[in-house]
Simulated assay, not measured.
Amino acid sequence: MERRPFGPVPREIAVIGQGTWYIDDAHRPTAVATLRRGLDLGMTHIDTGEMYGDAETVVGEAIAERREEVFLVSKVLPSNATRAGTVAACERSLARLRTDRLDCYLLHWPGPHPLEDTFAGFERLREQGKILSWGVSNFDVPDLDAAWKAGGEGRIACNQVLYHLQERAIEHAVLPWCEEHGIATVAYSPFGHGSFPGPDTSGYRVLGEIASSHGATARQVALRFLVRRPSLLTIPKASSPEHVADNAAAAALQPTEAELARIDAAFPLGSRPRRLPML
């Protein structure tokens, strides 16, 4: 599995990781087996959050006795992100995950509490060794500017954002901002949320033609396109060990510049929205 820098974190991270939103809806033994199969394939970046129901407990079971392999990320809800609330939320997540630390802890989206307070909570957790780094999620450029001012240079590890072929809004300004400031950009829902192009669409036909030339699948081609820049990583969720293996194989694809250009044309960027889309 290819690995890449993760902002200022002194460790390289799997370019394709594992998301866990709604993983608790699945048959639990299958969900655990899927995450473990992903680890076997080098997908050691696992993302979860306190909002995701019982996902943290599923992850905790899956990584038992394999914690040292994992780059583990969770998130605090904005409603909990006071200075003390951030610390308390993290401790609850650690208990559910059955671990003593997170590799990165994120503010799930901009919320009502001052960023200075949230980040002070992050720093307290970092000083205690309960988190090793911290970042943000669903932050647009004005939010990122405010976070940079509140947190200080070199503190923010990543910005986790919605990014898939039919939703490329981050390319207008968010991705360039993160690249300029040395922050990793992590794409969530890289296949959309039940909206991957259907087989009767022109976009799918382009993906399929490129996939055929590489002995790959259309979804693998889409996933590889979304990590075509060095600052990008992604965290698709998988429903089975077979599905996670399919995701992992995307990391080995090497599409040509011409093929990337075809995908770019088939799924045009569109105009910049007034607000950054999120799920």
Rank of each mutant, 00 (worst) to 15 (best):
P197M: 07
V136Q: 06
K130G: 00
R205E: 13
R11D: 00
M43L: 15
E123G: 08
K130I: 01
A89R: 11
T234N: 02
A64Y: 02
A33R: 15
L175Y: 03
L269V: 09
Y188D: 10
D40C: 11
I46V: 15
A216Q: 03
C178W: 02
W134S: 04
L162R: 13
A157M: 07
H193Y: 02
R28L: 08
L39S: 06
G152W: 07
N247E: 04
E171P: 00
D246T: 14
E209W: 03
E153H: 10
G60E: 09
R37K: 15
V221H: 01
E91Y: 01
R219H: 10
V32K: 14
I170M: 02
L39Y: 04
P5W: 00
L107A: 07
W148H: 13
M43A: 14
C90L: 14
C178Q: 08
A157K: 11
P190E: 10
P197N: 06
P255F: 01
L72R: 14
M43V: 02
I170N: 09
N138D: 15
K75W: 00
L107T: 08
D117Q: 14
A187E: 09
T34C: 08
N247H: 10
R224H: 12
L102W: 07
L276G: 02
A258V: 13
G7W: 02
V59Q: 07
L260Q: 11
C104M: 07
P176G: 04
G152I: 10
E167I: 06
C178E: 11
D143Y: 08
I131L: 06
A249R: 15
S271C: 00
A31F: 00
L175N: 12
E242Y: 05
L102Y: 07
A173M: 01
H193T: 15
G53Q: 13
D246I: 10
R126Q: 14
V206C: 05
R3L: 06
E65W: 03
E167F: 00
S133E: 00
S271F: 00
R275W: 03
V9A: 05
P268C: 04
N159F: 03
H164S: 03
M43E: 13
E116Q: 13
